[in-house]
């Protein structure tokens, strides 16, 4: 369903600022996401540009609603109309009208959104990888730099031919492919080590891999432990996971973690231990 003005306030929706050639796929992927349908609000920076590129228009039908707003995405009134204060995430795409200098405007849009709602998960598309460092001072949550991605993929492909197939597989959101998920440590597994949880997954024969964990402590940047090392490293395979920590899993569906909880529960009942 597509509408040009939000008749009612949306919540837990995704706001996309600026349009470029990536729009159809991004909207399509978001609306195809498993679970609750996602509503998308599109803030189009230039009506003429939008109308000149019909190929950019996402399919009209799909799960969730698609709302179109026209105007400058850093405009406070427009952000309020998009109900950013209730949004789950905001994607700021680079403006093709600005060419290679689009990063400055994208960053300022992200800052404006963060000011409206500091809780929103902001994802920004950057053109030049050299600008990535400047964004550390802001509260932007994730930076996707196409250039950076291309450079790393080129190097990976050069050193380890074929490895891009694995990345393409992981990045695709089709139902038969795997993705990386970062779910919270399920309550019954809080207080266990990464090694114990990984062992249980293997012993229960569950079709996903626990590759690591993210430690979240108060007033600290999250610590990513992908492929944790052995004993004397910190954090390591035997680090005890707390309720705020996240697991890094590669799976077709994050809900597979429920199977682990179920399996662990059954084992606890059977053997008295996890």
């Amino acid at each position: 369903m597509e509408r040009e003005n939000p008749g009612q306030a949306l919540s837990r929706h995704v706001v996309i600022c600026n349009v470029n050639a990536k729009i159809p796929i991004v909207v399509q992927e978001l609306r195809a996401a498993r679970g609750v349908p996602l509503d998308v609000v599109l803030i189009i920076q230039d009506r003429a540009l939008w109308e000149a590129h019909p190929k950019w228009h996402p399919p009209r039908h799909g799960r969730g609603t698609l709302t179109l707003l026209y105007g400058c995405p850093s405009n406070r009134a427009l952000l309020r109309r998009a109900n950013v204060s209730q949004a789950r995430a905001a994607i700021i795409l680079s403006d093709p009208l600005q060419g290679k200098e689009a990063d400055a405007r994208s960053t300022l849009v992200a800052v404006a959104i963060e000011r409206e709602n500091p809780q929103v998960h902001t994802v920004i598309e950057l053109i030049l990888s050299a600008h990535r460092d400047h964004l550390r001072a802001t509260k932007i949550d994730e930076v996707i730099c196409l250039g950076d991605l291309a450079e790393k993929l080129l190097a990976q492909s050069c050193i380890t031919p074929g490895s891009n197939e694995v990345f393409a597989h992981l990045l695709t959101t089709a139902s038969h492919t795997n993705q990386i998920f970062l779910p919270r440590v399920p309550l019954p597994l809080v207080g266990r080590s990464w090694r114990t949880i990984a062992r249980r997954v293997i012993e229960c024969g569950l079709p996903f891999t626990v590759c690591g964990f993210v430690q979240r402590r108060h007033d600290e940047r999250p610590r990513f432990a992908l492929n944790p090392r052995g004993l004397e490293a910190h954090p390591n395979k035997d680090t005890i996971l707390k309720s705020k920590d996240q697991l890094i899993i590669i799976a077709r569906d994050a809900r597979l973690l429920d199977d682990l909880v179920k399996c662990a529960g059954e084992q606890r009942e059977g053997r008295g231990i996890l």
Binding site: V14, A21, K22, I25, V26, E29, L30, A33, R88, A89, I91, L93, H121, V123, E125, D141, E142, V143, I144, L146, G147, L149, A150, L153, L154, S157, P161, G162, N164, F167, A168, L171, T172, T173, Q179, I180, F181, L182, C211, G212, V214, P222, F224, L226, Q246, I248, A254
Partner: peptide, 25 residues
């Protein structure tokens, strides 16, 4: 091997929304 970075970028943008923090991984 051919790298067309745009599709990777599109997918990464979506994953960053659906699985916050995944870009770090």
């Amino acid at each position: 091997e051919c790298i067309v970075s745009q599709p990777y970028g599109e997918l990464m943008l979506c994953q960053a929304v659906l699985n916050p923090g995944v870009t770090e991984v």
